[in-house]
């Protein structure tokens, strides 16, 4: 009998874990997981707007890991077929409750400083303010170091039913990295 695995499964069940992945993430994996999640949500008859927000947030988070995690198996300047480390979790509050999506990945100190400023502002905005910023961002030219036109975080914030939550903690494995965690609710 595999005691640690049993503990792990019991704990996951106790915390209503709906989906969990820890490891290296690629675009292909994001696609395959999104497809499986989609079928699962459809067969559970989750309402369409919630399905839509959950899948959208999952793909944004997965692609954020693929594009920005500081732990990369592929060349740092690659723009295709990237593979980077992260943790993606979906928990559900009870059988009919909301879904909380969380992603964690290491980031450099420089990225932390940049993200923290943006997220602190986003976390205080109302839905209408987020939508208005989103519309402005659509017209703005892309940021130089962004691979997504700079509206990924706004999209996550827009789709979340409560303010986004985030944290940075020291990475246990690398002095130069911070573990960045972001959560949304749909």
């Amino acid at each position: 009998m595999n005691a640690p695995m049993n503990d792990f499964h019991a704990m996951a069940k106790g915390h209503n874990v709906f989906f969990y992945y820890r490891g290296y993430v690629s675009q292909t994996m994001v696609e395959a997981c999104a497809e499986a999640l989609k079928l699962r949500l459809e067969s559970a008859h989750i309402n369409y707007p919630t399905q839509r927000r959950l899948l959208s947030s999952f793909i944004e988070m997965g692609q954020n890991v693929v594009h920005y995690s500081a732990d990369s198996l592929t060349a740092v300047d690659a723009s295709e077929n990237e593979v980077r480390f992260g943790v993606l979790t979906i928990c559900r509050e009870g059988e009919d409750g909301q879904f909380t999506l969380t992603c964690t990945n290491p980031v450099s100190q420089k990225i932390k400083d940049k993200l923290q400023g943006k997220l602190e502002v986003l976390a205080t905005l109302s839905v209408d303010e987020i939508k208005s910023l989103y519309r402005k961002a659509l017209r703005a030219e892309g940021e130089e170091d962004s691979k997504g036109g700079g509206i990924g975080l706004l999209t996550l914030a827009r789709d979340s039913s409560s303010p986004i939550e985030f944290s940075f903690v020291e990475s246990p494995d690398n002095d130069e990295h911070q573990m960045f965690t972001l959560s949304v609710t749909v």
Partner: peptide
Amino acid sequence: RYFNSASTKLVF
């Protein structure tokens, strides 16, 4: 049916 944030900007 669905487009991600990076595609949104290009659709716009």
